[in-house]
């Protein structure tokens, strides 16, 4: 997904010289092609994320199209007020490209887990939140952002899930087995749902990409008795909350069951896969929920 992002940004620069790229001293082994091509339109702001966001807004308010890059919680939580006031309130054309989100940095420890970012970004007026699950969705999201502009947040991981058939940037059907249960995953955790279906009672699977086209999401929810949400994020304010909001807004009847962090820090040390298992976010946890539903 990171490589996809780099290639897309290079493509945008060819089309539009106003495109700029800003990093917070990160992107070793990835951003070099951008740096080479962008020359002085590539800026390393140093380890200073608050300023990086204000600076990006200033550029954007002066006709630049800015892609702003960092990892973990640094381009979101560290500079939340700058995002709110400088980017969102001024409707500045700044896209936050966030790598290494969710529990991707596993063993590095909780300071590197980005598990509250969707919630924080989603509450900001004007902010468009995108959580692609695979390279293809990343590509489509970036194309959309390039076209419509304004404040956007793109939550990425280095490697995407095994899904090549997306058709839109809102919610994509990944597998359809005519089940009355579906899993809606947001981001690369989609892989856990795909893995579950390989060896268990097959359920329908969706990838939810953006958090602001409620009607299309409602169309999906309407089809199911049970919806299991899957996210590498706190249960409040992320995917689960979003689906509950949509359900309520459209008076739907499905039961929504969350697989998410339940208001806790993932302070256990372990790889991403081990943390997913430990905190009940993986294929096994999904299996348990499906079995629970079938027991009823």
């Amino acid at each position: 997904m990171r490589t996809t992002m780099v290639n897309k940004v290079l493509e945008f620069k060819k089309k539009n010289d106003n495109v700029m790229f800003v990093t917070g001293d990160l992107g070793y082994g990835a951003l070099e092609p951008i740096q080479d091509m962008f020359k002085e339109d590539f800026i390393n702001c140093g380890i200073a994320e608050q300023n990086m966001i204000s600076f990006s807004s200033g550029l954007a308010l002066n006709n630049k199209k800015v892609f702003c890059y960092s990892i973990s919680t640094f381009p979101t939580l560290r500079c939340l007020e700058q995002i709110r006031n400088d980017v969102c309130y001024h409707n500045a054309d700044v896209t936050i490209i966030n790598i290494g989100t969710g529990l991707e940095y596993g063993s590095l420890g909780i300071t590197h887990h980005s598990t509250e970012d969707i919630g924080c970004m989603r509450t900001m007026p004007n902010m468009k939140v995108y959580v692609p699950s695979c390279a293809k969705e990343t590509e489509m999201v970036l194309d959309e952002i390039y076209k419509i502009g304004g404040p956007s947040f793109v939550r990425l991981n280095k490697a995407g899930a095994d899904f090549n058939g997306p058709t839109n940037t809102t919610i994509n059907e990944v597998e359809n087995h005519n089940s009355n249960i579906c899993a809606i995953a947001s981001g690369t955790i989609l892989q856990e749902a795909i893995n579950y279906n390989k060896t268990n009672e097959k359920i329908d699977i969706y990838s939810l990409v953006c958090y602001f086209r409620d009607e299309k999401v409602a169309e999906v929810l309407r089809k199911y008795d049970y919806v299991i949400s899957m996210e590498e994020h706190q249960v409040n304010c992320g995917l689960y909350s979003y689906l509950c909001e949509v359900k309520n807004k459209y008076n739907l009847t499905c039961k929504i069951i969350p697989l998410a962090l339940k208001g806790q820090f993932a302070s256990k040390v372990g790889k991403q896969s081990e943390l997913r298992a430990h905190y009940g976010l993986d294929a096994n946890a999904l299996k348990t929920e499906v079995l629970n539903i079938r027991k009823k």
């Binding site: 063993s107 302070s267 372990g270």
Partner: peptide, 15 residues
């Protein structure tokens, strides 16, 4: 020895 591994408290960044 447990550094970085599941079950240990020794995360990469100091904990």
């Amino acid at each position: 020895d447990g550094y970085y591994t599941y079950g240990s408290d020794l995360s990469g960044h100091v904990s």
